[in-house]
Amino acid sequence: MNKVRIALCQMNVVDDKKANLKKAGSFIADSAHSNADFIVLPEMFNCPYSNDKFVEYGENEHDSCTLNTISQLAESYNVYILAGSIPEREGDKLYNTSYLFDKTGSIIAKHRKMHLFDIDVKGRITFKESDVLTAGDDFTIADTDFGRIGIGICYDVRFVELARIMAEKGAEILFYPGAFNQTTGPAHWELLFRSRALDNQVFCIGVAPALNIDASYHSYGHSIIANPWGEVIAQAGEKEELVICEIDLSEIKKVREELPVLKNKRKDLYEVIEK
């Protein structure tokens, strides 16, 4: 299947898990009724983006009300759902984890954020995920009815090696649920998604929460799809919005034939190696 209808669910996230799950369900229903094939939720879609809330909202995978809800929705609507990310608890560790559900509601992949968001932009924003979160160690590739996809989370998009390894493993769409802020978003969000798409001649997709001015962390929003030519083909604003865009995976082959960047790499001189 070359053409895929992707739904970007840029939902408002509040300090109320039940309300967030209800909102996610509404976005998923609207997406399914618009014939979306693949639905994507934002990073930390069930939880305010705050270290103390990660701890408070953390769920174990085996008895997660959030994951059970998304599983039922995926099966009910017969769609793939990438459940943005949630704070996942395992023993005494907490992860920022994205789950991919197939059309039967089964989890077919999970990605634990590999690169934790520890930044300090002087006078503008400081955040240190590593105060409460543990980094994941696995590259996440999944096979779907639409081909192979790769999954990262937010800050992961800044690391070119991760995207290249996923592309070299055959991923044709790279998904990064994310929550850039009002400092890094305007400067880098679009640039990074266009760059990763262009670097690897793939589709690159980011889905963010809407801007909630009442929250302590102000998301940039602007959920986005960039194509293999590095063009933005769909993008939201900062407010709550559902964006549905059909992509054509045959564009990947066309672009790679016209501009054979990946073929022309000097593998005799350099390579990116997965350890």
Score class of each variant (00 low, 15 high):
His222Ala: 01
His218Arg: 14
Thr184Ile: 13
Thr69Ala: 15
Arg194Asn: 12
Thr144His: 06
Ala19Tyr: 09
Thr134Ala: 14
Asn227Pro: 03
Glu161Arg: 09
Ala7Gln: 02
Gly221Gln: 06
Val4His: 02
Ile86Glu: 03
Val40Ile: 15
Ile39Glu: 14
Val121Ile: 13
Gly84Asn: 10
Phe54Asn: 00
Leu21Ser: 13
Glu161Leu: 08
Lys267Val: 14
Asn35Arg: 15
Asn2Pro: 12
Asp199Gln: 04
Trp229Pro: 09
Lys110Tyr: 03
Gly150Met: 02
Phe159Leu: 01
Cys65Trp: 04
Lys128His: 09
Phe159Arg: 01
Val243Gly: 10
Gly123Leu: 02
Asn200Pro: 06
Phe146Asn: 03
Arg148Gly: 13
Ser216Glu: 12
Ala167Met: 11
Lys113Asn: 12
Val243Thr: 06
Lys23Gln: 13
Gly91Gln: 05
Leu191Ser: 10
Glu251Asp: 15
Val132Cys: 05
Leu82Trp: 01
Asn60His: 09
Arg148Thr: 15
Gly105Ser: 10
Ser31Arg: 01
Leu67Glu: 07
Ser195Lys: 08
Asn12Asp: 12
Lys239His: 13
Pro87Ala: 00
Gly178His: 08
Leu174Gly: 15
Val13Tyr: 00
Val79Ser: 11
Asn20Leu: 06
Leu242Asn: 03
Glu231Met: 10
Asn227Leu: 01
Asn20Gln: 13
His33Leu: 15
Thr183Arg: 10
Arg158Phe: 13
Glu238Pro: 06
Ile141Asp: 00
Asn264Arg: 10
Leu259Met: 11
Glu271Gly: 09
Gly136Glu: 08
Ala171Arg: 06
Pro186Val: 06
Leu21Glu: 09
Glu241Ala: 04
Tyr220Glu: 11
Phe159Lys: 03
Phe54Ser: 00
Glu190Asn: 08
Gly230Cys: 08
Ile205Asn: 02
Ile86Pro: 08
Leu192Lys: 05
Val79Ile: 12
Tyr220Arg: 01
Pro209Gly: 15
Ser98Gln: 00
Ala167Asp: 07
His33Gly: 13
Asp199Ile: 05
Asp145Gly: 11
Ser71Glu: 04
His218Gln: 13
Asp214Ala: 10
Ala24Glu: 02
Lys53Phe: 09
Pro209Ala: 05
Ala236Ser: 14
Leu41Thr: 05
Asp16Ser: 09
Gly185Ile: 05
